[in-house]
């Protein structure tokens, strides 16, 4: 069964990591990508506009019930949790999880529920544990798990915590993560 969704979580240092990741994805990358980057609750859509400069894949901030389309990049909006349902996104303003809204755990756990083994979970640089439980859920539901190698992460706390508590499929430097995603999402990838 092919992968249909990639979910990515990052906090501190995420901006440059995401830029590098998106920059090296080909314009015909076939899978949808959803991203939680921890951000201030008042931040505007500048993040989306910033990332769009580095990729020809369409990058957009999610509105409630946005359809999940292949080859699109979806950003969690500031001050909302981003959740995945089969084929669509939904949003919530439930309490922050580990002080974060959007929370990486919320995205990854709901995506694991909805996409199971058709899901790839990726954790990049980050300064706290938000994302670890989510990655465990991805793993438990049969999805693929990838974590940025701590020594290449601007902030190694999140990658280290993930590696310590989840038996992660791949621990890779950032440059290799993109290549691996391209491989996994190609027709021969699985």
């Amino acid at each position: 069964m092919a992968f249909e969704l990639v979910v990515v979580g990052t906090s501190l240092g995420g901006l440059s990591a995401l830029r590098n990741m998106l920059r090296s994805l080909p314009r015909d990358f076939p899978t949808a990508i959803a991203i939680v980057q921890h951000r201030h609750k008042d931040s505007d859509i500048a993040l989306t506009a910033f990332l769009q400069q580095f990729t020809s894949l369409p990058v957009g901030e999610v509105e409630d019930k946005t359809q999940i389309l292949p080859g699109h990049v979806y950003m969690a909006p500031a001050n909302y949790h981003l959740l995945v349902e089969p084929g669509i996104f939904s949003l919530s303003t439930d309490e922050p999880v580990s002080y974060a809204r959007p929370s990486i755990d919320v995205l990854l756990e709901s995506a694991a529920d909805a996409y199971g083994e058709r899901l790839i979970g990726v954790l990049l640089t980050g300064a706290n544990q938000d994302g670890v439980q989510g990655l465990a859920a991805v793993k438990a539901r049969g999805g693929a798990t990838i974590v940025q190698s701590p020594e290449t992460a601007e902030c190694p706390v999140l990658p280290q915590a993930a590696i310590a508590s989840v038996s992660v499929d791949q621990v890779l430097p950032l440059s290799a993560i993109t290549a691996h995603l391209i491989h996994l999402c190609s027709p021969a990838g699985r």
Binding site: H81, L83, V84, E85, S90, S92, D94, V106, E109, S110, D113, A114
Partner: peptide, 9 residues
């Protein structure tokens, strides 16, 4: 209700 957030709550 939207299933994912309902389940979470």
């Amino acid at each position: 209700y939207a299933a994912a957030s309902l389940k979470r709550r």
